[in-house]
Computed example of a mutant assay.
Amino acid sequence: MLQTVGEWIWWERLWLPVSVSWSDLEDKEGRVYAKASQLYATLPCALCLLVIRYLFERYLATPLANIWGIRDRIRLPAEQNPILEKYFRGQTRIPTQDDVRSLCKKTGWPERRVEVWFKRRRNQERPGLRKRFSEASWRCAFYFFAFVGGILALYDKPWVYDLREVWAGFPKQSLLPSQYWYYLFEMGFYLSLVFSLTFDVKRKDFKEQVIHHMATLTLLSFSWISNYIRVGTLVMVIHDSSDILLEGAKVLNYAKYHRTANGIFVVFTAVFMVTRLIIFPFWLIHCTWVYPLELFPPFFGYYFFNIMLLVLQLLHLYWAVLISRMVYKFIFSDDRSDEEEDDSDPPKERNSKLSHMNGSGARGRANGH
Results as ranks from 00 to 15, higher is better:
residue 2 L to N: 06
residue 4 T to G: 09
residue 5 V to Q: 12
residue 15 W to E: 01
residue 15 W to I: 06
residue 16 L to R: 05
residue 17 P to G: 12
residue 22 W to I: 11
residue 26 E to N: 08
residue 39 L to H: 05
residue 44 P to T: 13
residue 52 I to Y: 01
residue 58 R to M: 09
residue 59 Y to T: 14
residue 66 N to S: 14
residue 67 I to C: 08
residue 67 I to E: 10
residue 70 I to P: 02
residue 72 D to Q: 00
residue 73 R to D: 07
residue 75 R to G: 08
residue 86 K to S: 15
residue 87 Y to D: 03
residue 88 F to E: 04
residue 95 P to R: 13
residue 97 Q to F: 10
residue 104 C to W: 06
residue 114 V to D: 09
residue 118 F to V: 15
residue 119 K to R: 11
residue 124 Q to A: 14
residue 126 R to Y: 00
residue 127 P to T: 09
residue 137 S to H: 00
residue 138 W to A: 04
residue 142 F to A: 01
residue 148 V to H: 03
residue 156 D to Y: 03
residue 158 P to D: 14
residue 174 S to P: 11
residue 177 P to E: 09
residue 180 Y to C: 02
residue 182 Y to K: 02
residue 192 S to I: 02
residue 194 V to F: 10
residue 196 S to I: 07
residue 199 F to P: 00
residue 199 F to I: 10
residue 199 F to E: 08
residue 200 D to C: 05
residue 203 R to D: 00
residue 206 F to K: 07
residue 207 K to T: 09
residue 211 I to C: 06
residue 215 A to V: 07
residue 219 L to Y: 01
residue 220 L to C: 08
residue 221 S to V: 07
residue 221 S to D: 01
residue 227 N to Y: 08
residue 228 Y to A: 10
residue 243 D to E: 12
residue 255 A to N: 11
residue 257 Y to V: 13
residue 266 V to S: 11
residue 270 A to V: 08
residue 271 V to D: 11
residue 272 F to K: 06
residue 277 L to Y: 06
residue 287 C to Q: 09
residue 297 P to Y: 04
residue 300 F to N: 08
residue 302 Y to T: 13
residue 304 F to R: 04
residue 306 N to F: 03
residue 307 I to W: 04
residue 313 Q to R: 01
residue 313 Q to P: 10
residue 324 S to R: 09
residue 328 Y to I: 01
residue 330 F to H: 00
residue 331 I to G: 00
residue 332 F to W: 15
residue 344 S to T: 14
residue 353 K to S: 09
residue 355 S to R: 13
residue 362 A to N: 13
residue 368 G to S: 14
